[in-house]
Design a protein around this nucleic acid. Structure first.
Lengths: 93, 93
DNA sequence: TAAATCGGTTTATATTATAAACCACTATTG
DNA sequence: CAATAGTGGTTTATAATATAAACCGATTTA
């Protein structure tokens, strides 16, 4: 049986990637509310996805407030697709 | 987003369940080689699935050797199906 | 100006997965 | 027949992971 990319096989990281696959970009606050996660957890998981090169994180400003924007990278997109293929084997899809 | 049953969201346990969903029963040795896991890890994960009522584990003999046979329970089948449904939301299937 | 809120990060803790060591039994070999 | 090696596991220790708690700087609000 194929290996499941451990970076993606985590509920929160998978949720984040899933969202980013469908949406040009998303900011921290949006991801937090969509995934219903705590900021601490989200911050850590975004770091991991970012370190792996699966997402690009850009810290900027919206008016006076900080704004952290995330996008999926081509590498992340590829990894996500491979993960989906591997999972299908497990789910019998 | 739906919650992913943490008992199933684990590579090895998911692999075991996936196999058991398609096959009347399977013994320890078969599961070990199919999933390419160590006996220790497999033993632990089978216990967890069993304690959760997702599989039934029966210890018997094949000739003089011990033989541990596993089957998925109706409850396990149901949980697996729910898990698959939940995951589809993440995978965009 | 003090207190609350926003948008996070860092650090500590609980949970989980994995590996290593072990055990009882059987079969084999010198 | 005693020592050795192999099955088929279980138990226990350790490494990795996820999660939560505490914190921080900047901004807004009372």
């Amino acid at each position: 049986m194929k290996e499941l990319d451990p970076l993606l096989h985590s509920q929160l990281r998978l949720a984040v990637m899933s969202i980013l696959m469908n949406v040009e970009e998303a900011d921290f606050v949006y991801l937090k509310e969509k995934t219903d996660s705590t900021s601490g957890n989200l911050s850590v998981q975004l770091d991991k996805l970012s370190s792996a090169g699966y997402i690009a994180v850009e810290k900027g400003f919206a008016g006076k407030k900080t704004r952290t924007v995330c996008r999926v990278t081509p590498q992340g997109r590829k990894a996500f697709e491979l993960y989906v293929e591997a999972l299908k084997e497990y789910l019998n899809l």
